[in-house]
């Protein structure tokens, strides 16, 4: 869809979803922040950071290969919190990026994590590494880092494609605890087969809210859930309408149901 006017009903629906999310963010900022359930995969973060410290080996973080996009920013958001935990233990963080635009942002995030944990002297700019923007050159670069540095834990979060299995399998081989999260549905099976914990679907977006307890992020998650509820209602009504159209004879109700279905037709 190029413009909202191509299909007003969908344009308005997107606007309604946005308003719900924004409303929940604003109310969470002004009132009592909501609570959200614990995500199992996040328990592994502390375990992985602690184990890496015991072993005296670094932690690897990879924000996907998608460039400076929403999943990468979300991943960096989570890495900021993990980085603080790593810094508190006095351990080393390696951030491998596949997009040059992420070098600056990534450096800021990791430096900030070490600074806010009171250990700015431990931050090493050389550990924020741009390896390559070519998919498999990047994969071989990350595999090299995992093998050479013998990382104790790796966090693979963001947009991953075919390189996911190469990176995660090499991590498996060196015995690293691996936590993955991706917006790419097709890569989930590979991560599930090779990683210790995988954040599924929108758990990826909920992770930073849970870790930070930031009211803005918590409000956003609640807003997303309400938006999801609205989508669910539309799906159920759509299914019932489709059944009605098939079963009812031609008439007003039939036309009404058909019109409702047409509202959301691509």
């Amino acid at each position: 869809m190029e413009h909202a006017s191509d299909h007003w009903s969908i344009g308005i629906f997107v606007a309604v979803l946005s308003i719900i999310i924004l409303y929940k963010i604003v109310t969470a900022q002004r009132g009592k922040p909501p609570t959200i359930r614990r995500i199992a995969g996040l328990n592994a973060i502390d375990e992985a950071v602690g184990r890496a410290t015991e072993m005296g080996r670094p932690i690897l973080m990879v924000p996907g290969i998608g460039g400076l996009d929403i999943p990468a920013l979300q991943a960096l958001n989570i890495f900021g919190y993990i980085g603080r935990s790593v810094a508190r233990f006095g351990n080393r963080t390696i951030l491998a990026v596949a997009d040059p635009q992420l070098v600056g942002v990534g450096e800021e995030v990791i430096r900030d994590a070490y600074t806010s944990a009171g250990r700015p002297e431990l931050f090493n700019a050389e550990d924020v590494r741009f390896l390559s923007d070519r998919q498999f050159a990047f994969a071989s670069g990350v595999a090299g880092v995992i093998e050479r540095e013998k990382v104790a834990a790796s966090f693979l979060m963001g947009a991953f494609f075919a390189e996911s299995l190469i990176i995660a399998e090499v991590g498996q081989r060196v015995g690293a605890i691996q936590v993955a999260a991706t917006n790419q549905f097709t890569q989930l099976p590979f991560f599930i087969a090779t990683c210790d914990y995988v954040l599924l679907g929108d758990e990826f977006y909920a992770a930073s809210a849970y870790l930070s307890k930031n009211p803005t992020l918590l409000g956003s998650i609640v807003g997303q859930d309400y938006a999801k509820l609205l989508i669910l209602i539309v799906v159920i009504l759509g299914t019932l309408s489709a059944c009605g159209v098939l079963m009812l004879p031609a008439g007003h109700v039939h036309d009404l149901l058909q019109r409702f279905m047409d509202l959301f037709k691509s």
């Binding site: 191509d6 075919a162 097709t186």
Partner: peptide, 23 residues
């Protein structure tokens, strides 16, 4: 799908690698 073919319902044939097919 979002930016091009939906506008005039141009027939779209998807030829992905096997791993991307479920999309």
């Amino acid at each position: 799908l979002g930016l091009v073919v939906q506008k005039y319902h141009t027939p779209f044939i998807y030829v992905p690698t096997a791993v991307m097919a479920p999309e």
